[in-house]
Design a protein around this nucleic acid. Structure first.
Length: 498
RNA sequence: GGGGCUAUCGUCUAGGGGUUAGGACAUCGCCCUUUCACGGCGACAACACGGGUUCGAAUCCCGUUAGCCCUACCA
């Protein structure tokens, strides 16, 4: 069944990605964002980027820019959210899209309303008192709770405190039954009410003021205010969801659909972290990966698209275009269990995508990995350079394979010299140096003629040329190598060997 | 401690009562070849464990184990 059919509301699909600007854009976050993006695109809906910058100590405009640029690079464009390079502006009708800018306008009125309606209450318990109780519970080996079980009746739930003293604000949770979450990927999950106690929606403020609201509160206010219909997020949020559901209900809002997607683990099954290698999207960019490869690899982690009801059955089918992914995407096909990140497969997909791309498509991605001189080269030259190296696993490999075209070799591979720079081959080399018609066919014909005259095999001459021209017996196809260098440069590099 | 989620080749996964348990990446071997690659062909390789239910269980149920998440006036 399509998840859309289960949505009671007839509003257009809206998803959102809400990262914290804490210094980098994590690959796991990008994957979640990708699912949100795919889902929105598939259903012709909107995709929102929202910045959760309530962690004042780590949130900076620079970090927000890192997120924006990372998202832009990986090709996840947002319909609503911040405007790159304009910290105080945004696009979309539900702004601001930075939480710190929503305090007075959105969060505080919502808290006040809940208190006024008796759905939430002021709590005068201090952090110290709470810590004390927590320690006590721990010593006794019983679970701490604010107002549940043995702690029932404790706390300020029924005290009806006014605002005359500093207070935090807690939400009254239902006290019996269960909160059920009908998750689009995990299925039905029940949370017994007696495990969910009254939680803080707003921290203690100054004097009679309401303090800064907490994450679980802001999320709900934002998601309702921004008309989010499908909350697609990491499954580390599953256990937060019953709190949020209770809040939706207290505020009288219709529930969105929830889809908790599994997290990405490192190769060893531990949470993906620095020691597994690259975790930030910026690093993947630097590795010479195509954004399309990153999208594909990330999407295929935990998701098996079905074509006509069948999962992909060949290497060819693994390489999906964005259009195919958007068309095929279905939350029902997402795995419940976490997946381990596999750099090898990403790398293979990257290679396949490089092979499939036209040289024009590749050029802008490749350019940053090449020296300045690249830009000045004629189109034809670029075409040859790219098509000649399009077997590489990454843009870095391609650039590396083209180095010889920009730098004369300073060192020469000893084994290569010993093996291929024979006396027998030198006269042939001399003839190659004299060639002037560098059109591919002419070059090939002349090359073969030289071979014949000197009784050499292709390998003998080609390898000797590679060593002389590139310093090592490795280069693109020999005719491409010659063409990229051109007759003058070939002559110059050959001179010392004649 | 409590609550929740998860478990098929090394990795991503298909399959959901009867299959030689299928594919992809990686690995290994062979072939192709002007180098390196690409490409082609092939091989290796899995149902976490223990109980049920059943004529029959990877598949359904219950336990166990392991991993992860939440259990904050973090997000």
């Amino acid at each position: 069944m399509c998840c859309l059919e289960k949505v009671p509301m007839s509003r257009p699909v809206v998803t959102r990605f809400a990262p914290s600007p804490t210094g980098m854009l994590h690959i796991g976050g990008v994957r979640t964002a990708l699912f949100c993006w795919l889902f929105a695109r598939k259903h012709g809906g909107r995709f929102i980027l929202r910045i959760e910058d309530t962690d004042l100590s780590r949130s900076t405009d620079d970090n927000i820019r890192i997120i924006e640029e990372g998202m832009a690079w990986v090709g996840l464009d947002w319909d609503e959210g911040p405007i790159v390079g304009e910290p105080s502006q945004w696009k979309g009708p539900h702004g601001p899209y930075r939480q710190m800018q929503r305090m007075e306008s959105h969060y505080k009125p919502a808290v006040e309303k809940l208190i006024a309606e008796g759905k939430a209450y002021r709590c005068r318990c201090t952090r110290e008192e709470l810590d004390e109780r927590r320690k006590l519970a721990e010593a006794k080996g019983v679970p701490f709770s604010y107002n549940l079980g043995v702690d029932a009746g404790k706390g300020c739930r029924d005290a009806n405190h006014d605002a005359s003293q500093p207070y935090s604000v807690r939400l009254k949770m239902p006290q019996d039954g269960a909160i059920v979450l009908d998750d689009l990927v995990k299925g039905r999950i029940e949370f017994p009410a007696d495990t969910l106690d009254d939680w803080i929606i707003a921290r203690t403020g100054e004097g009679t003021e309401i303090g800064v609201p907490t994450y679980n509160f802001c999320v709900v206010v934002d998601d309702t205010g921004m008309e989010v219909t499908h909350v697609i997020r990491g499954d580390d949020h599953v256990a937060n969801t019953p709190k949020q559901i209770a809040l939706y209900q207290a505020m009288g809002f219709e529930l969105p659909r929830f889809a908790h997607v599994p997290m990405i683990l490192g190769k060893d099954g531990a949470k993906l972290s620095k020691r597994h290698g690259a975790t930030s999207i910026t690093e993947y960019q630097a590795l010479g990966l195509l954004p399309s490869a990153v999208r594909l690899a990330l999407a295929r982690l935990s998701w098996t698209p079905k074509i006509d009801g069948k999962a992909v059955e060949s290497a060819e089918e693994e390489i999906l275009t964005d259009e195919q992914m958007i068309q095929l995407f279905d939350l029902n096909e997402i795995q419940k269990s976490p997946a381990r990140f596999d750099m090898d497969k990403l790398s293979w997909m990257n290679q396949k995508l490089i092979q499939k791309a036209t040289w024009q498509e590749l050029e802008p991605h490749l350019r940053p990995f090449l020296p300045e001189a690249w830009s000045a080269k004629p189109e034809d030259w670029k075409r040859i350079a790219i098509t000649a190296t399009q077997k590489g696993k990454s843009l870095v490999e391609m650039a590396e394979a083209l180095r010889f075209a920009f730098e004369r070799p300073t060192e020469f591979d000893e084994k290569g010299v010993a093996k291929f720079m024979t006396e027998a081959v030198k006269p042939a080399l001399r003839e190659v140096a004299g060639l002037s018609d560098y059109a591919h066919d002419a070059l090939e014909a002349a090359f073969n003629a030289i071979l014949e005259r000197h009784g050499l095999k292709t390998k003998d001459l080609a390898q000797a040329l590679r060593v002389a021209l590139c310093g090592k017996p490795v280069s693109p196809g020999i005719f491409d190598t010659l063409m990229l260098l051109g007759p003058d440069e070939v002559l110059a590099r050959l001179e010392k060997w004649l």
